[in-house]
């Protein structure tokens, strides 16, 4: 559906020019590599109650390496409600959850329009599944809550060319951030949940340095790896030991079941790390 209400730029994409800084510097910075151990996540900053007009809100930022031209994930989430449904809507015994995930037009290398594209709608569906399991929905019959996540800046590296960085893997990181930040905002809004749900990502990557043997890392940055074979994003409730949303994709090698289980397990581990940040941030607000 075309956006007819605004004056949009030309359809063809334009990419900001990247200047060649000389050969030796380029080879040095050409390929960012992962300096963290395989089982460590990037540092995360999370703060609740940043938007006074919303009933609940949160802001999440993921650590950026010191390199210029690289941006980390920045997310802001607002929760509006619970509020009564309009009179015209049919009776609902549970709270009606509406999730809305939108990349800011300037969040990624490729400019995004103002209307949500299919990938954003897809992320919204994933987020809804993840949160619906956590919210105790039957405490609010006949009411609705809107959860709006805006991705202010995506995980991007300007140095990597567009072909190299496959955006589909970035979506997993974006989703796990969305889940964590939305969970913080729900807690800030005082909506009852069975537990705090947090998102975590694990990936099976192939490294040149490692003789092309695949290994599992958590919280992957796609530009840091030669090839991502498979990845999974998990929304996990730590005290209940339950998964509310699981998203896996990729091409598994033959002994797939064990690797798959290990991948999910590492995803859970990543989500436990995220949960720690989440719990700390919420208790700061309360305390």
């Amino acid at each position: 559906m075309a956006d007819r209400r605004r004056i949009n730029g030309p359809a063809g994409a334009t990419i900001p020019p990247i200047f060649d800084d000389g050969v030796d510097k380029k080879t040095a910075s050409q390929k960012p590599t992962r300096s963290r151990p395989a089982n460590a996540v990037r540092h995360t900053f999370l703060k609740t109650g940043v938007t006074p007009s919303a009933s609940g809100s949160a802001y999440l930022e993921v650590e950026v390496p010191g390199k210029p031209g690289v941006s980390g994930l920045k997310l802001s989430c607002t929760v509006h409600g619970p509020r009564s449904l309009p009179r015209s809507s049919p009776f609902a015994p549970h709270i009606i959850l509406t999730t809305h995930v939108k990349f800011a037009p300037f969040a990624t290398k490729q400019r995004r329009g103002y209307l949500r594209d299919p990938t954003e709608r897809d992320l919204g569906s994933h987020l809804e599944t993840a949160l619906r399991g956590a919210i105790i929905a039957d405490r609010w019959p006949k009411s609705g809550v809107d959860i709006i996540v805006s991705i202010i800046e995506g995980d991007q590296d300007r140095e990597t060319s567009k072909e190299q960085g496959d955006e589909s893997w970035d979506m997993m990181n974006a989703l796990s951030g969305c889940i964590t930040v939305a969970s913080a905002a729900l807690a800030d809004a005082g909506i009852d949940c069975v537990d705090t749900v947090a998102g975590g990502v694990a990936a099976l990557v192939r490294e040149e340095a490692n003789n092309g043997v695949a290994k599992i890392v958590i919280d992957p940055v796609p530009s840091e790896h030669v090839k991502i074979e498979a990845a999974c994003c998990v929304a996990y409730l730590p005290t209940r030991d339950e998964i509310t949303n699981l998203w896996f994709k990729g091409d598994m090698p033959d002994d797939n079941m064990n690797t798959y289980m290990e991948l999910v397990q590492q995803g859970i581990q990543a989500s436990k790390f995220a949960n720690r940040v989440l719990v700390q941030s919420i208790s700061e607000t309360v305390g």
């Binding site: 609902a92 015994p93 549970h94 569906s125 994933h126 809804e128 599944t129 619906r132 399991g133 929905a137 999974c232 998964i243 509310t244 949303n245 699981l246 998203w247 896996f248 994709k249 990729g250 091409d251 598994m252 033959d254 797939n256 079941m257 798959y260």
Partner: peptide, 16 residues
């Protein structure tokens, strides 16, 4: 070979 897994939001969560 496993290619993708997604959780479907089961409609059971919104039943009375």
């Amino acid at each position: 070979r496993l290619l993708s897994v997604r959780t479907i939001d089961p409609p059971s969560r919104v039943t009375p």
